[in-house]
Amino acid sequence: MRVSTLALLAAITAQPVLADEIWVTNEKDDTVSVIDIDTMEVTHTYETGERPRGITFSHDYKYVYICASDSDAVQVMDPATGKILHDLPSGEDPEQFVLHPDNKHLYIANEDDAITTVVDVESRTVVAQIDVGIEPEGMAVSPDGKIAITTSETTNMAHWINTETQELFANTLVDSRPRHAEFVKDGAEMWVSSEIGGSISVFDTATQTEKAKIRFELPNIHPDRIQPVGFELGEGDKFAYVALGPSNHIAVLNAETYEVEDYILVGRRVWHMAFNADKSRLFTTNGISGDVTVVDVAKRKALKTIKVGRFPWGAAFRPTN
């Protein structure tokens, strides 16, 4: 057994160039699917703990962190082998998390406990637990690392955490069921998507005040089905790409004018997404159809659908060179 593993590893490392990858968590299969960006095919499927959702790489790409929600753990995997190295203490039901720019502190939303847990990934200890609203989910950290955000789905707030003191310093109301948060434009703005409210709230980071609210409209699709969840910013933060859940579309949003310019049809109940290295391709997780849609960002068109596991949820990019 040991001999053959070594032989296999040797064979892999002997490959001259490996393609970049997209890693996708499959919530109902307890696996991650690894997609080769060049061939657009699944090359590996690794087992994880129960109900994997949030996924992110360490900033040096040495580790991949996976929220195994129903195992009440954040798992640390070696991306080269797919082996689980160890679990981090995470609090109950970790759903999403964000890694601080210091590459050391993981801010984790504990959905069942109304808590944000801060974990030191090196010492593997809990640094702080912060009381937030009910069903925390969306997590973001500012580029300068000073502010972390937790959004709570039932309390309908964005909670602003001072990462130095690990205490809340502001709580801002957003529309119903906030799902995802991102700092935009070098941290000048903080955006929150609201699934049931059907909107994205744009906050001025310096004052924590709402400066815009973005809504979506699709012909022939009932507004109730247009439910913004995950979103990512494209090259230079010029455009945002917003997953609209059960409307099965991605919105292309001009991040300057806050106008929606286009809608791209993808798979069913689109959740989250990740870009390739130069952000020319976007990979969306489609929960109900159990696949990933590859979008040509420039042409704003779906290129291909890749079958993954059941209920794909999170997505993360891994460069391999």
Partner: peptide, 10 residues
């Protein structure tokens, strides 16, 4: 499951 005693003080 809670790890720190000071969370309530926040």
């Amino acid at each position: 499951m809670r790890f720190t005693p000071h969370a309530a003080a926040v």
